[in-house]
Simulated assay, not measured.
Amino acid sequence: MKIKVGFGFDVHQLKDQHPFVMGGVTLEHHKGAFGHSDADVLLHAICDALLGAANLRDIGFHFKNTDPRWKGISSMILLQETVKLLTEKGWTIGNIDAMLCLEAPKINPHIPQMQENISKAIDLPVEDISIKATTNEMMGFIGREEGVVAYAVCLIQKL
């Protein structure tokens, strides 16, 4: 068996009166992440971790932010397309571990739904999807609620 580990990172600007989608959950907040797709930083970081582990470049290579096909698209679709790319190369996902960094809103109550959304989208057991959240202790652009950051690592395997 061959195993590989991947790392992903994503950051999006927060804007007033914009939807805030995280892990496929729309969060109630006065600001939301802004981007070409639905700007789901969690799923973007996971996509990059998976693509990187399989040496398939990055999310921007496969889903360009200049391509109108991806404008406003749900990042769950991008995640599903990413998993298809891995499957075509013979890879399966062992686990995903992700960390969100933002001041508000509180993420903890939404983690089970995020895990369930990801699990259903990519057919990976919930117990293999870890999502955690922290603040930036009110420092920097995250502390000023100007942006949100996500990190993810994954393990993939090939028999």
Rank of each mutant, 00 (worst) to 15 (best):
D67K: 00
K71Q: 07
H36P: 03
G35Y: 02
K132V: 10
I107K: 06
T66I: 04
D16Y: 11
T26I: 11
I118Q: 11
W70D: 01
D97N: 13
T87P: 03
G94L: 11
A39T: 05
Q80C: 09
G23D: 05
S37Q: 06
I122T: 08
E145V: 03
D58N: 15
T82D: 00
L79C: 04
V21T: 14
L50Q: 10
C101V: 15
A54L: 11
E145I: 03
I156T: 08
M99K: 15
A150E: 00
D16H: 08
D123G: 11
S130R: 15
P109Y: 07
K15N: 09
V153P: 01
H30R: 11
L50V: 13
A45H: 06
P68D: 04
F20K: 08
M138D: 11
A104H: 10
A45R: 05
A98M: 04
L78T: 05
P68S: 01
D10M: 08
E145R: 04
V5E: 11
A54W: 08
I59R: 13
P19A: 04
V153H: 12
G90N: 02
A152P: 06
G94D: 12
I73N: 01
G6H: 06
I46K: 09
K158T: 11
A53L: 09
D67Y: 02
F20H: 14
E28R: 14
F63P: 02
I156W: 06
I3G: 05
I118L: 10
L79H: 01
